[in-house]
Structure formats: structure tokens, C-alpha cells
């Protein structure tokens, strides 16, 4: 189908983009890579009055080193992120998970920020950002910049904490130092498919076993969730496969997985336990 008509602005700076978004009012939308928004427009599930296209805001594509963290610009494409030397060195979990997103053509257009702002619980990157304790930077013309932790950014199903006049400019990702291993375990049935369940995981091993474990789940509720019971029960335990399997039994605690044609909520709870054990084992080995 053909999208409903809209006004169109193509700013080249963040300031222009914020001003255009504020001027266009509540029913305007930001267009990033369009890989989620264009299908919604074509199906007329979304019909904004105006689109503010960030495609030519080059400053938002930057990925920079901030010492103890990376700052990944919202418009960095999936293709760019998974190949970026800084990301591969300091945030390999993002590079690994991004490589599982969609297909090459979609990754050429789709963006890191778009995948987060879209706040789809089946998206792979929200859980990854949550596992890495990422901090989100949003800007509006009226109120300037504000920062919020990942746990506050994902509010509900397909709903982020962004206000209608705010643009996500990027995400600050603390670097994981020595001793950390990471893994993203994604379960899907066909090529180029969304996760039925996904597990983003980072494990820091010390001499006496697990010093810290972080586990975040994709598609186990309306927002990505941390498997806090698994994290807690692993602290100080030996980094053995048996310990990981035992801890993973608690992966579905406190979650509310959806039931749909890809699987019932019970099936998802089962998957979360199995995949968490696999993810922990792979992360600790890496």
C-alpha cells in the first residue's frame, strides 16, 4: 500500500532536527533507517502528519571513545556497528547481537538508535543495552539534553521514555574490561527472523569463580528484562556448566512472556531457561 500523505523535513544538524520536530507538533515522527517505520506507514498502522528524516544528520552516525565508555550515535547503522573496531573491542556483545538482526539490506539502513527507540520487546538490541547498563541521551529543542538508564528507557510494549519532541541522539555504553565474556543467544526458526526468545549475557570471571553476571532477556515481556534471580544466584559460584544450568532454572522468574503463534508463554519460559544456560556457558568460555 501507499503511505498516507505527510509533511517531510530533512534536517542536517541535531539542532535543526529538534526544531523541526517541535514545530511539527505531537503527530510528527522521527524517521531513522525506516526499517520498522516504513512498513508501518505502508500498512497504514502509522499515519503521522510529518516525518523528520535524520538520514542526513551525519553527526548522529558517529561512534566515539569516551575513555571508560563508548558513545554510539543513534544513526549508526547496524552494518556500521557490527564492523566498528571500537564496538568490536569494547562492546563485543553489541557487535555479536547486531549481526543476528535482520538481513544485510535491512542492516544497511536500520540504525542502532532506531532499534532502541522502537522499543520492540522482540528486538535484539534493547536487551543488549539493558545487560550493558547503557545510558540513553535524548535531546529536545525546549529542554535540552537529558540522560536516562536503560531500565528507565523501556517503559512498555513498543513504548520508550522519549517525549514526542525528543530525539534519541545516542547511547553511552560502559566498556567491559578484562575478565568479561559475553554472548547473545537467539532462538528463531527461520532465516531473517525475530527472536522467539533471546538472551544477552555478560560474565566476569575471577579466580574464585563468577564475580558478576548480567543476563537480559528478549521477548519475555512487554519490555526487555534482567533475569535478576539468575544474576544473584551466580555471584561467587564456580564458573561451571552445572552452576550455570542450575542458576538458569530461575531465568523466567518475574517475567511475563507473551503467547503467540510462535510459541505459548510456557514454551517461552522453558526457552528462557535453556537459552540462559547456553548463553552463560558460552559467555564464560569466551
Amino acid at each position: 500500500m501507499i503511505p498516507a500523505a505527510f509533511d517531510y523535513a530533512r534536517p542536517t544538524t541535531v539542532e535543526e532536527a529538534c526544531a523541526a520536530l517541535a514545530d511539527a507538533g505531537e503527530d510528527a515522527k522521527v524517521l531513522a533507517g525506516g526499517q520498522s517505520l516504513m512498513p508501518l506507514l505502508r500498512l497504514r498502522l502509522a499515519y503521522p502528519d510529518a516525518l523528520i528524516d535524520l538520514d542526513r544528520v551525519e553527526a548522529l552516525r558517529e561512534i566515539r571513545d569516551e575513555g571508560d565508555a563508548l558513545f554510539i550515535g543513534a544513526m549508526a547503522t547496524h552494518h556500521q556497528v557490527m564492523r566498528d573496531p571500537l564496538v568490536r573491542e569494547h562492546a563485543p556483545l553489541i557487535a555479536k547481537a547486531t549481526a543476528t538482526v535482520a538481513d544485510p539490506a535491512v542492516r544497511h539502513r536500520g540504525t542502532f538508535g532506531g532499534a532502541l527507540a522502537h522499543a520492540d520487546p522482540a528486538g535484539d538490541l534493547p536487551a543488549v543495552a539493558l545487560a550493558l547498563d547503557a545510558e540513553f541521551a535524548a535531546v529536545s529543542a525546549e529542554r535540552g539534553e537529558r540522560r536516562m538508564p536503560a531500565a528507565e528507557f523501556f517503559v512498555d510494549w513498543m513504548t520508550s521514555a522519549l517525549e514526542p519532541d525528543e530525539i534519541l541522539v545516542g547511547v553511552r555504553v560502559p566498556k567491559l574490561g578484562a575478565g568479561w565474556g559475553v554472548h547473545y543467544e537467539k532462538f528463531h526458526r527461520t532465516a531473517q527472523a525475530w527472536a522467539i526468545v533471546g538472551v544477552a549475557c555478560a560474565v566476569r570471571r575471577g579466580q574464585d569463580g563468577v564475580e558478576e553476571a548480567r543476563v537480559a532477556l528478549t521477548n519475555m515481556g512487554p519490555t526487555p528484562v534482567r533475569a535478576t534471580e539468575v544474576e544473584r544466584s551466580l555471584q561467587g559460584r564456580a564458573a561451571s556448566e552445572d552452576a550455570f544450568k542450575e542458576a538458569a532454572q530461575r531465568a523466567a522468574e518475574g517475567t511475563s512472556p507473551p503467547g503467540d503463534l510462535h510459541g505459548s508463554s510456557e514454551y517461552r519460559a522453558h526457552l528462557a531457561r535453556v537459552l540462559t544456560a547456553r548463553a552463560l556457558t558460552a559467555a564464560a568460555a569466551g
Partner: peptide, 9 residues
């Protein structure tokens, strides 16, 4: 680079 031209304006 490859893109799906139904997702580009």
C-alpha cells in the same frame, strides 16, 4: 550498497 527500495522514500 543493497537496500530494499520499498523501505526507502
Amino acid at each position: 550498497v543493497s537496500v530494499k527500495s520499498c523501505s526507502v522514500l
